[in-house]
Write a protein that binds this DNA or RNA. Structure first.
Lengths: 246, 246
DNA sequence: CGTACGATTGAGAGACTTCAACAAACGTGG
DNA sequence: CCACGTTTGTTGAAGTCTCTCAATCGTACG
């Protein structure tokens, strides 16, 4: 039976909200998470949160905004490898991999919580079940990267964009940040291009195709999806790899 | 100080050999790994080890041979997402993700050890440090997938192939399966194509370019790398993402 | 009201694909 | 040990998806 006050607090805590979408957490474990020390920090758009080569002592938890993981190639081009939203802990990997092999940047003004790595480790030692949940979370992230890989390897630009839009929409919904038929998506065409291995010119043209086909309505950062099923089919999107509870 | 008999055994145990390359393991932990129950099984070439949608009760450890992870697209094309060799536990994800979202197949006759998931879990509960090491291993795999992603997104076919050859060679060396200037690589051009998001025709032509440029000598499944540094430069290969100890 | 960044458009080029055929290598059975 | 079929590797030619370059347009913001 769930404690009501705790339940209130739990929903307002982004990490709990997210973990709740991928696993069952006991009240005791919820309390342990709420008890974690955290320093809140606001990052302006285009400011790096963690840089390649660094070894940070804190883990980053996204409270709001939009963050992405990227790497710069020797020739200056950029590859984006993941988008992160409320509740995500993008550098959970720093718990066990001490030197970052990629960077994190805020796409828009975002607030993040910095949790001392040591506090997190100690807490996970006391709650091995929670440790498993976070491990599970990192495995889900791997599954997302793999699905992304499939797109870059075997899907057309049209499919790739449709697929990414589906994924982002589903993830935003899972943490309560999207309506059934749309969401806010503060991602520029340049960022789509860097994420999907395309040029901005091509992204622009394919987005027009998607609009022309009535699959999306994209004005500024507002995305509308008139026919979800159609977009899903266009992107060959199957949410199984996200391993959500429902 | 290390127990000599244990040391002997450790080197002959593929899992220990591999974990040893990414972390420091205590004698007690080594013994715990050696005590794991395991059923050895031989898989013929092109036989699936785990299939998408399944929920296996065992974890797969590769004892020898060559295994890859793949997914089939609706149109029948295949994307390979990873290669696995001695010591790898490709479906460690099944510890926490109960339904497989991709498949594993043996590329050549391979032997694998099946470790009951429950035994592994119980052992990890008794040795939280080992749990962290395996978690670390899955995080390294994520890093490999990300690097692969970068290749598909931003590297030319020529670079991609060079990069993959470098990675495989380094990983084979880490577990003692490669000479300094070459190794055995039982991967067909079709498999390279499916792994790198290319057509077999193009793989064939680019391999010829690599040969012409003196970067590789590839006869059958024997790979020679006359000038490692040159191949590394061609593929923009930086082993940092493998997070090896030395 | 200028400036800057993102979105859009046109035209030409290039990397990679597809189709199709053929050669070489390999394992297997007679 | 050779014949044979199957798999893997190789080659040519035509096509296409996507890129690069370069210019223009819109809009938010100081």
């Amino acid at each position: 039976m769930m404690n009501t006050a705790l339940h209130e607090q739990a929903w307002s805590n982004p990490l709990l909200r997210k973990l709740d979408s991928i696993a069952d957490i006991s009240d005791e474990e919820k309390q342990a998470i709420l008890d974690l020390p955290a320093a809140v920090k606001v990052c302006e758009a285009d400011v790096d949160i963690v840089r390649e080569g660094e070894c940070s002592t804190d883990c980053v938890l996204i409270l709001n905004g939009f963050v992405c993981r990227y790497k710069i190639m020797p020739d200056g081009r950029r590859q984006i490898m993941g988008f992160y939203i409320l509740g995500d802990i993008p550098d959970l990997q720093s718990l066990h991999l001490h030197v970052m092999d990629n960077s994190l940047v805020a796409l828009v003004r975002s607030s993040i919580a910095l949790i001392p790595r040591k506090s997190l480790r100690d807490m996970l030692r006391r709650h091995p079940d929670l440790s498993d949940v976070l491990w599970r979370d990192t495995l889900i992230e791997t599954a997302m990267v793999r699905e992304w890989l499939i797109g870059l390897g075997r899907r057309s630009a049209y499919q790739r964009i449709a697929h990414l839009l589906c994924e982002l929409h589903v993830r935003l919904r899972a943490v309560g940040l999207a309506r059934e038929n749309g969401c806010e998506l503060p991602i520029t065409q340049t960022e789509f291009a860097d994420a999907l291995g395309l040029s901005t010119v091509h992204v622009n043209r394919v987005l027009q195709d998607l609009r022309r086909d009535g699959l999306i309505v994209l004005r500024g950062s507002m995305l509308e999806i008139p026919d979800w099923r159609a977009l899903q089919d266009a992107g060959e999107f199957d949410p199984a790899y996200l391993h959500l509870k429902r």
